[in-house]
């Protein structure tokens, strides 16, 4: 009889322990660190806590990508290409340029890193905004833009048309996230999230097995436009007109250009894309942002992309695939 009493008490104690365990994982804080790199803030959140060396190795991947793909660093390989008009086949920039060329083709030219020439003409790099005239824009579109025309690859390497400029900012972040994720994965980190200025990748699980929870910022009031929750790995990227812009005569112009008109687009306030790879989310959010709604809505449906559009008039449009991922934020 005494044995039964012990069994019952142990059973109930075990149930109690399970209930208590439901609480304990929340108390395990992740490692979270932010660093200023690639002209922005990169954050890594890792469960369980990894070593400083492993974290440094992950951040080092961003530094490596920046050292070769920065538009602003004079000694980067990209700057050498922009300056000299050529780059050897052995360059470590080759994979990134090939990815850029691939997305240029896949997006019908809406993702175009050679728009840097246009962006320069508008003063996005100097910070002194101006509106180029029709002739100037037409000349830039004809002679210096269109990655498929201005960047040629042969066995010797790459040749860039005279006067053309390439800015890989539209994919360098996503590319660096993929490299850093590989480092974290190989170091045995079981769950992590990488945030490159709002371009996000997460994989693995949190200690309490809860979903990763990502908010989509509402640029109108800084609140939450939507939430994405998932346990499966996802890349989420948003393009908007509110962080990089010029102001001319009191009017704001965003940095993403329509490839046909050469003018900054103003169809949307933000476009958020979910993809299975960071580079894809990064490149496609830029490309879709550049597309007029009548093209973009159809284009994303044909590719079954999960996309949340906030149009410049304040209308929210969700692609069919997007309805599986985006949900309305609860009222505060």
């Amino acid at each position: 009889m005494a044995g039964n009493r012990v069994k019952v008490i142990l059973t109930v104690a075990a149930i109690a322990a399970v209930i208590m365990l439901l609480k304990s994982p929340q108390q395990e804080a992740p490692l979270f660190e932010s660093r200023l790199m690639m002209d922005t803030i990169i954050s890594i959140r890792a469960y369980p806590v990894i070593s400083k060396k492993q974290l440094d190795a992950a951040f080092a991947e961003f530094a490596k990508v920046e050292s070769k793909a920065s538009f602003h660093l004079e000694n980067s390989e990209l700057s050498a290409l922009n300056r000299n008009g050529s780059l050897g086949a052995a360059s470590s920039l080759t994979p990134l340029l090939q990815i850029a060329a691939d997305y240029f083709a896949r997006t019908d030219g809406y993702f175009d890193p050679s728009f840097a020439s246009l962006q320069k003409a508008y003063g996005f790099y100097s910070g002194e905004g101006r509106l180029p005239g029709e002739d100037e824009i037409a000349g830039l579109l004809r002679d210096r833009c269109g990655l498929g025309q201005v960047l040629l690859q042969n066995e010797e390497g790459f040749k860039l048309a005279s006067g053309s400029l390439i800015d890989l900012g539209g994919i360098a972040g996503g590319y660096a996230i993929e490299k850093a994720a590989r480092v974290l994965r190989e170091s045995g980190c079981s769950g992590f999230l990488i945030d490159d200025a709002g371009d996000i990748w997460f994989e693995g699980s949190k200690p309490d097995s809860s979903n990763w929870r990502i908010a989509v910022r509402d640029p109108r009031d800084n609140g939450t436009l939507a939430l994405v929750e998932s346990r499966a790995p996802l890349a989420i990227s948003t393009s908007g007109d509110y962080e990089r812009f010029i102001t001319v005569d009191g009017k704001r112009y965003g940095h993403i250009m329509n490839p046909h008109s050469g003018r900054p687009v103003d169809y949307y306030s933000s476009v958020t894309i979910i993809a299975s790879e960071p580079v894809t989310a990064d490149a496609l959010s830029t490309a879709v942002f550049a597309m007029p709604p009548e093209i973009a809505f159809k284009w994303v449906e044909e590719r079954n992309l999960a996309v949340l559009f906030l149009t410049s008039t304040g209308t929210i449009h969700l692609s069919r695939a997007g309805r599986q991922y985006f949900r309305q934020a609860e009222a505060q």
């Binding site: 959140r45 999230l193 709002g198 371009d199 996000i200 910022r217 989420i236 948003t238």
Partner: peptide
């Protein structure tokens, strides 16, 4: 605790 793990913007 933080309400969300990250914010895309």
């Amino acid at each position: 605790g933080q309400k969300v793990d990250a914010v895309t913007r």
